[in-house]
Design a binder for these strands. Structure first.
Lengths: 186, 186
DNA sequence: TTTACCTTACCGTCCAGCCGGTACAGTCCC
DNA sequence: GGGACTGTACCGGCTGGACGGTAAGGTAAA
């Protein structure tokens, strides 16, 4: 059961938050307009006023996820002094950090992809941009790419709740990623 | 307990193959019993004779994927001489190789997860076992884990068709993974 | 005749999207 | 200032189609 939430923020924002909650709690297949509208404390008509179709809701969800991730990376970047591989390290700390905005990331990705693979276009573009930046960053491309891919892999496992690392193991892995990032830009 | 023989062309096998085709071609949300039975050239009743529910079909699909992956790894392992980090290298070559059985991997994972997150149990167990083996293998755990995670990340990106690497870049990444695997077991 | 395998026809539920409303805040004209 | 009109935000019942699953029967081999 998805609890109703007090009216805070714009209705549009409330709906998106509710959709994330629904998808994490009951799964992508049960992400229905009824469930989302109920969780957001609006009627289905109200939801459809802001998102004229389910597809538009999913698109907005994917966009929100991309924005959140960028936000987390930027925050992490701000806390790092200017150094070699700063961007890559910001990705490690930003994406694998504990920011609650990225908690639902995998589920959102899942719900989006499950409903329509073409909705991943937003994410595809972001990945392409990251890849270009990586190639242009002047470091060891292959090593930096491995670090990025490992970040993805870990985040994915954790989002699908199939990760089997202990907290200690996870910590050594993050440290190893930071070391590898260092080496890539030495 | 003699397992049902996976005779090539048996209806059961045809259905599973058809399900993979459907999920890659039209997406997880449109993986319906009608679509699968039609693609397999059987009636819906015929499909339900072999898989009494959609859930049982999805479970079989997940199991088939786990088996395929293990098969690919074993094949790759056979082609490697006994050396340090042989298992890890077999994962790199097996999973990131060109075996068609793993083509639909991500889509299958997606379809399974989208319909019911608990169906990932089979995969969760496999990941846990791999993690245990990695921890017991005597190499540099963190580094080996990073390699495994990067394999996952790359495979996932490719399955969702959001990867943006050129073939040349991909090749250098695979080489880098092999190098890192070497280092982890030196 | 029994069993394995498969078919067609059908049923009940669920869900996306539609539609006819309500409430209310401007704003323009008199 | 007050009536008429307009646009924004939202409500919730309804429906048509899709989909998972059932039932009853048919056929061929053992």
């Amino acid at each position: 059961m998805v609890a109703e939430q007090a009216a805070v923020g714009s209705a549009r924002e409330r709906v998106l938050e509710a959709a994330e909650r629904v998808v994490t709690e009951v799964g992508a297949a049960r992400l229905t307009l009824d469930a989302v509208s109920h969780a957001a404390g609006v009627s289905k008509g109200g939801l459809l006023y802001h998102f004229p179709s389910k597809e538009s809701l999913l698109t907005a969800l994917a966009q929100r996820y991309v924005d959140s991730m960028q936000g987390c990376i930027d925050t992490a970047k701000g806390s790092l002094e200017d150094q070699n591989g700063r961007d890559l390290k910001a990705c490690i700390l930003g994406i694998l950090g504990s920011d609650p905005r990225l908690k639902a990331m995998g589920a959102v990705l899942l719900a989006t992809a499950a409903n329509d693979l073409t909705l991943l276009e937003v994410i595809r573009e972001r990945v392409a941009e990251h890849t270009r930046e990586l190639a242009a960053s002047g470091g060891n491309f292959a090593r930096a790419a491995v670090v990025m891919l490992a970040i993805d892999g870990l985040k994915m496992r954790e989002s699908l709740r199939i990760s089997a690392f202990t907290p200690e193991q996870r910590e050594t892995i993050v440290k190893e990623l930071l070391t590898l990032a260092d080496e890539a830009y030495r």
